[in-house]
């Protein structure tokens, strides 16, 4: 009986902390992106200042690419904001992908807060020049 109670309590606590976590993370930063395409594939560049390799997460499945990151800023104890353009430390942005992209061959790099992601196209999806025969 007491064991069952303890279990219930655990569940409640977990739910509460999840709710709290959601509230805290309500404000997300939308990283500005450049996206362009050529015959080989699609390239995405995203500005995510403050994010390093360890605080960046890229989730890819067949249909979507989710970019998330946490800006890690050194700040002294007890610092008060005098002014703040940036009101959160969490970046999140997602993009729908299409079937001709080879999601298992995505390459990503991060330098000075700029994320670069390259998604190649399947060979059969690359554009072919179609010759026109005359006569």
């Amino acid at each position: 009986m007491s064991e069952a109670n303890a279990e219930n309590k655990d569940v409640v606590t977990r739910e509460n902390s999840e709710v709290q976590k959601q509230q805290e993370s309500e404000i997300v930063l939308r990283a500005p992106v450049d996206i362009y395409e050529n015959a080989e594939g699609i390239t995405l560049l995203a500005d995510m200042p403050g994010v390093n390799k360890d605080s960046l997460s890229l989730q890819v499945d067949k249909d979507s690419l989710i970019v998330e990151g946490e800006a890690r800023i050194d700040m002294p104890e007890g610092m008060e904001a005098l002014y703040a353009d940036v009101r959160s430390t969490r970046y999140q942005r997602s993009f729908a992908l299409s079937g001709e992209l080879e999601t298992d061959r995505i390459e990503a790099s991060l330098k000075d807060g700029v994320l670069r992601v390259h998604i190649p196209k399947r060979a059969e999806a690359r554009p072919r020049k179609i010759e026109i025969h005359t006569g």
């Binding site: 800006a71 002294p76 610092m79 005098l82 353009d85 940036v86 807060g113």
Partner: peptide, 14 residues
């Protein structure tokens, strides 16, 4: 962002 403590002012440019 600009933050301050009694000892210092820190400016962060993203």
């Amino acid at each position: 962002n600009v933050g301050s403590t009694p000892e210092q002012v820190d400016v962060y440019l993203f």
